[in-house]
């Protein structure tokens, strides 16, 4: 079979919302429109796009939290929709927001997750401490309620949760957004090591140019739910005739990468 970690073909996903006083108008957001790309096993692929471009939606489809409207997704050969159970066993995900029980400690949150994946508790605890140490988090915070940890540390716990099960596929949705520079470097160094040592297939979304360029072999530009360009950083710069990745994005997407104003691109398609 192929050695593809992630295979996405003509993927589309829309959300509709009822609007207006009587909730009779329907506005439809096309979060993903005909997206296709591949990530080889062991490769780190970066998705760069501004807020609202559909990055998180894509990650959610790949982690079986959203059903695609159209298209075919294969994760290590397993289909979505159809083989979600197989996919779930093989995927770890880190999202921007640290989604934890805030009163529970890192230990309790992590062991809960480990048990859901069927891991042995004692082994999981040892591994959790190893990963946290590698990420540069002190062990004594392990039993403090998560709400008492800084955002940087919470994100390290989130990464630990994703890695605890040693997943062959890792989906990272802006894992370093909002982190202090040291935590950001810790995380980036760790990811480089992970790819080198475990051959993990990683899909990373970001709107941080430098990070993407440092970590990812190939990069896709996403804007308005469409994958508008793809290649190595150098290829993208050459295609756009630009000096930097930033300029390449502006040239190809016609918008800036960190443009908050572009957040909502809702097309009112149907009015009833």
């Amino acid at each position: 079979m192929s050695n593809l970690g992630i295979e996405v073909r003509s993927l589309s996903k829309s959300f509709s919302k009822r609007k207006g006083l009587m909730r009779t108008r329907r506005s439809v957001t096309r979060a993903l429109a005909d997206v296709s790309f591949e990530v080889a096993v062991g490769e780190t692929y970066g998705l760069l796009g501004p807020n609202g471009s559909g990055k998180s939606t894509l990650i959610r489809v790949l982690s079986t939290l959203l059903t695609p409207d159209e298209g075919d997704v294969r994760m290590l050969g397993y289909h979505i929709p159809g083989e979600e159970d197989e996919v779930r066993r093989r995927v770890g995900r880190v999202s921007v927001d640290a989604a934890f029980y805030k009163k529970l400690s890192a230990r309790e949150n992590l062991l809960y997750s480990a048990l859901l994946y069927g891991l042995d508790k004692a082994a999981a605890e040892r591994r959790a401490l190893e990963i946290l140490e590698a990420l540069g988090m002190e062990g004594e915070k392990f039993t403090d309620p998560l709400e008492e940890l800084s955002r940087g540390m919470q994100q390290k716990v989130a990464i630990t949760r994703a890695l605890l099960v040693n997943p062959p596929l890792l989906l990272l949705d802006e894992p370093t957004t909002g982190l202090d520079p040291k935590s950001r470097r810790d995380v980036q160094t760790f990811l480089e090591k992970l790819r080198g040592e475990h051959g993990t297939t990683i899909l990373l979304t970001s709107h941080d140019m430098a990070e993407t360029e440092r970590l990812c072999a190939r990069i896709g530009f996403i804007a308005g739910g469409r994958l508008i360009a793809e290649g190595t950083a150098d290829e993208l710069k050459a295609t756009a005739g630009a000096e930097t990745l930033d300029d390449a994005f502006i040239a190809l997407a016609g918008q800036k990468l960190d443009d908050e104003g572009e957040k909502r691109r809702e097309a009112v398609l149907a009015e009833a």
Binding site: R88, V91, S95, F100, Y101
Partner: peptide, 13 residues
């Protein structure tokens, strides 16, 4: 409320 629902739902349970 806690935001953990997605993680519970994506676990192989």
């Amino acid at each position: 409320w806690e935001g953990t629902l997605e993680y519970t739902f994506m676990a192989p349970v």
